[in-house]
Amino acid sequence: MRESTLMQMQYVTAVLAVLLVGVHLLMQGVLVPYGEAVSFQRVLSVYRDAVDGALLEILLVVVLAHGFNGLRTILIEWRQTPSWTRGVNWAVLVAALATMAYGTRTVILAATGQVS
């Protein structure tokens, strides 16, 4: 992939993250009182709402893509041997996908799982 394509992705995820994190922060304390925002009932209703649940999933993917690509940038600027660069590119990709998968599992189970 061209470096400018990755950078374009970095910009797009940055703008989306600013918007989505902004909404997320507002919902967790400003528009909804903090104590209520973390209550079981409230969290459940957020995950079970199609729009709110989808926004959380998009937030997850966007922030992780942006964050792990940023980490990759820092690491490849640190050392430049071919094996380091290749290792960093793969390790960061795997770590990002694994974290996304784990977070997505939470979103899916919270939205569809049996409440106990």
Binding site: R2, E3, S4, L6, M7, T73, I76, E77, Q80, T85
Partner: peptide
């Protein structure tokens, strides 16, 4: 310039 160690660093 549009390379891994180019302008985007």
């Amino acid at each position: 310039v549009d390379a891994e160690h180019g302008v985007w660093r």
